[in-house]
Structures are given as structure tokens and as C-alpha cells.
Computed example of a mutant assay.
Amino acid sequence: MARSALTLHSGGGQPLPADWRSWLDHLPEELRDAYEERAALIEYDGGEKRRTAERRAFEAVIWRNAAARPALDACCAQVLAGAGA
């Protein structure tokens, strides 16, 4: 299967934190759904491995998306509060 050319973010900006996967359970449902859909598209249409597709989807849908920033900030607060417990 030939790889399709996907338009992904250039990687500029802040790198993902090492624990980004722990944030997934704290995302609002609409962001989680958008993340899951993008990961599936990158994996199946783009021919990427699942773990790579998940990371790229998180970057594209959540990490580098200014509209998702308020939800991400709230999510971060929940994750950090749980880490201190």
C-alpha cells in the first residue's frame, strides 16, 4: 500500500510532554472524538503505525489547536492535580 501525503503540522512550537497519553482520559468528549477520528485517518489512510498516528493526531487536534487550548488547559489542571495526590 502506498503512503498518501498527509498535511500535518510542521512540528514548530512546544514539544509534546512525555505524559501526553495520560491527558486523554480528561479531554472533553468532542475533543476525544476528534482525536480518535484523526488518529484512525492517519493510521489507515496515511499508512502510519498506530502509536505514531496517535501522537500526530494529538499534536494536530489538541496540542497545536488554539481553539482547543481552553479545554487543554483545564485538562492539564486535572492531570496535574491527580499527579499530586
Rank of each mutant, 00 (worst) to 15 (best):
M1F: 04
A2R: 10
R3P: 04
R3W: 06
R3C: 01
S4R: 09
S4V: 08
S4E: 08
A5E: 07
T7Q: 06
L8Q: 09
L8W: 10
H9V: 09
S10N: 14
S10T: 10
G11F: 06
G11H: 11
G13R: 09
Q14G: 00
L16A: 04
L16N: 09
A18W: 04
A18V: 09
A18F: 00
D19W: 07
R21N: 11
R21K: 15
W23P: 04
L24M: 15
D25L: 02
H26Q: 13
L27K: 07
P28H: 11
E29A: 10
E30P: 03
E30M: 09
R32S: 03
D33W: 14
D33Y: 09
D33V: 12
A34G: 04
E36G: 01
E36S: 07
E37I: 11
E37R: 07
E37T: 14
R38A: 12
A39N: 08
A39Q: 04
I42W: 00
E43K: 13
Y44C: 01
G46Y: 00
G46T: 01
G47L: 13
K49M: 08
K49P: 01
K49E: 11
R50M: 04
R51A: 12
R51I: 05
A53E: 13
A53I: 05
E54A: 03
E54R: 12
R55V: 08
R56I: 05
E59A: 05
E59K: 02
A60H: 14
A60R: 14
V61Y: 03
V61T: 14
I62S: 03
I62C: 05
W63K: 11
W63I: 00
N65I: 05
A66S: 08
A68K: 13
R69S: 06
R69N: 01
P70Y: 04
P70R: 06
P70L: 11
A71Q: 07
A71H: 14
L72P: 00
L72K: 07
A74I: 00
C75K: 10
C75H: 12
A77P: 03
A77Y: 13
Q78T: 13
V79P: 08
V79Q: 08
V79N: 02
A83T: 04
G84R: 15
G84W: 06
A85K: 14
A85G: 07
